[in-house]
Design a protein around this nucleic acid. Structure first.
Lengths: 106, 106
DNA sequence: TGCTTATATGGCTATATTGCCAATAATGAA
DNA sequence: TTCATTATTGGCAATATAGCCATATAAGCA
């Protein structure tokens, strides 16, 4: 594989990897609807605050979210408008997989 | 979080996780264009054949691809038609991230 | 200044993933 | 049957990830 192509797939894989965790997917879902601070997310996710903060760092690192400071609060939000496409594709795969498994049982 | 919701995010995370590897993204890209057998993919990916086989198992496990046997060959192909959306969203995020970093340097 | 709140980071252990080699099917040809 | 080809699986060591506690940083207030 060409070096350039390989790098491209690695870059994409980083994004997929950032999304490859249920808590981070929930956060993306929430942050897509509205800006939230770490404390809000910590309640919603139900994990340790430090854990949530690290998840957010992972998402920010790949550019899926960004943050702004307001006093002591850090507000996070989703940067791209194409996440719905992501999620709906995932649902499609999940449903199709269910159907497929039904088929193979028949 | 509700139990049902949590399970839903876990299911989605499995799909994202399956895609979270450069070799597997390459395979998806190739298999979307045309059906291929393990040997073909092994050449393209440039890893051990057993490694490729395991990657394929991971993708099949979540329903992103399926396979059919023809003699000693296993032909794999992508099952869903929405992967382009995935990839283009990834590109969007990557480009936006580049722009964002330029901005923050200014 | 000292106290409180909000967030980020260091450090650690448990667990998961990766990728190779070796071994095991499974198919077809000699 | 024996051999060659193709693919899958087991096992292992190296590496990466997850999540908690403890700690550090930073801002605002008394």
């Amino acid at each position: 594989m060409k070096e350039k192509t390989r790098k491209q797939y690695e870059a994409r894989a980083k994004i997929a990897k950032a999304m490859a965790h249920p808590s981070r997917l929930l956060m993306l879902d929430l942050l897509q609807k509205q800006e939230m601070c770490v404390n809000d997310l910590t309640e919603k996710v139900g994990a340790d605050q430090s854990t949530v903060s690290k998840h957010l760092a992972i998402l920010r690192e790949v550019g899926l979210i960004d943050s702004r400071k307001e006093g002591t609060l850090s507000y996070y939000r989703v940067t791209c408008g194409c996440l719905d496409g992501f999620f709906s594709c995932m649902e499609t795969v999940l449903l199709a997989d269910l159907e497929g498994r039904k088929q193979s049982v028949k």
